[in-house]
């Protein structure tokens, strides 16, 4: 399969005033990833592990400190210089809070026709309106005519998140980055939104990066999963490999602490020491060293390399 996006050694540091080396916030700290066409990659991590920064880097809302992102083989800096609209059209983002996503002064018609106008799709306002009505009905907002004159505050969270998904799909992008798209929604609505997202991506062959802290939901939606901890990917592999054959202690901790809806399923939760730390002054050893239940002396000295476990499954730990 062809890879759509390739990330090499992607790094984002936030450097405080005075350039104090000890206090650099290493939000994303050297990530290598690639996403194939039509693939859904899930990214899991605790709050503060840099997963949202990664998403913002990918849609060029932030500039990386080092490293490169290649979109269809071409570095995105080059694409942005030569053909900005092409990149913006093909890389779309869905944010966590649908109420913060839209300008409250614009109605749904304006919200959805603006991107079409910008990218010169549809010859007249009426034609563009016809396009959005067709897409809205496809995504389950029926009758769409009743909705297009409403404002964001007149819709429920679930409906508005659907509009957000519709907006991202309108331009037929090649990559969608969904940053916690369902964590604000009620459970009964969540399943619908996830299904719409999955159906649309499968139908149009779109690749997606699904960022979440919810392991069960991510497993449901993704083909491949990457686990992040303090700005680094600690384990990556197919969903089955990650859930059934997790190798990194941190992945094991996350999975064992994921509560089930089955009251009979008693899992032995793996305990970790301490609290999720901040990405300041990390290293030189393994970042998880202090909280790890398997740590040994070697872990303190250098950061473990990614180990190839076959079948696209990689983990970075000395104790595999």
């Amino acid at each position: 399969m062809d890879s759509l996006i390739e990330i090499e050694d992607l790094t984002k540091w936030y450097i405080p005033k005075g350039r104090n080396e000890d206090k650099i916030i290493k939000a994303v700290d050297g990530i290598d990833l690639s996403i194939n066409k039509g693939e859904v990659l899930g990214i899991i991590g605790e709050s503060g592990c840099g997963k949202s920064t990664l998403a913002r880097l990918l849609v060029a809302l932030e500039k990386p400190t080092f490293g490169s992102i290649k979109f269809e083989g071409i570095p995105i800096n080059q694409i942005l210089k030569e053909n900005r609209l092409y990149f913006k059209k093909n890389c779309q983002m869905i944010f966590q809070d649908p109420f913060d996503t839209f300008d409250p002064r614009n109605n749904i018609q304006k919200i959805l026709t603006t991107p079409l106008k910008t990218h010169d799709i549809g010859s007249s306002h009426k034609k563009r309106t016809d396009i959005i009505i067709k897409v809205m009905e496809e995504a389950g907002i029926k009758p769409a005519k009743d909705f297009i004159h409403r404002y964001p505050h007149e819709l429920s969270g679930g409906q508005l998140q659907r509009i957000s998904i519709i907006r991202s799909m309108l331009l037929n992008p090649k990559l969608i980055i969904a940053d916690e798209p369902v964590s604000m929604l009620d459970v009964s609505v969540r399943a619908d939104i996830i299904n719409i997202l999955l159906n649309l991506t499968k139908k149009h062959g779109v690749s997606m990066i699904f960022i979440s802290h919810d392991i069960a939901t991510t497993c449901y939606i993704s083909d491949k999963i990457a686990i992040m901890y303090l700005g680094k990917v600690v384990e990556i592999g197919s969903t089955d490999d990650i859930i059934k054959k997790a190798k990194h202690p941190y992945t094991k901790v996350l999975i064992s602490n994921c509560a089930s809806i089955d009251p009979f399923e008693k899992k032995d939760k793996i305990k970790v020491k301490g609290e999720p730390p901040t990405p300041v002054g990390t290293g030189p050893g393994c970042y998880f060293y202090e909280r790890c239940y398997k740590s040994c002396n070697g872990c303190k000295e250098s950061y473990p390399e990614m180990m190839d476990l076959g079948n696209g499954h990689y983990a970075s730990c000395f104790n595999i």
Partner: peptide
């Protein structure tokens, strides 16, 4: 039943998620 069907399970067989249509 609807609420329980809306939760994806981590282990076991992968079944289709069904939400509850409509709103509160």
């Amino acid at each position: 039943q609807g609420l329980l069907d809306s939760f994806p399970a981590l282990t076991g067989e992968k079944k289709n998620l069904r939400g509850i249509p409509g709103s509160i």
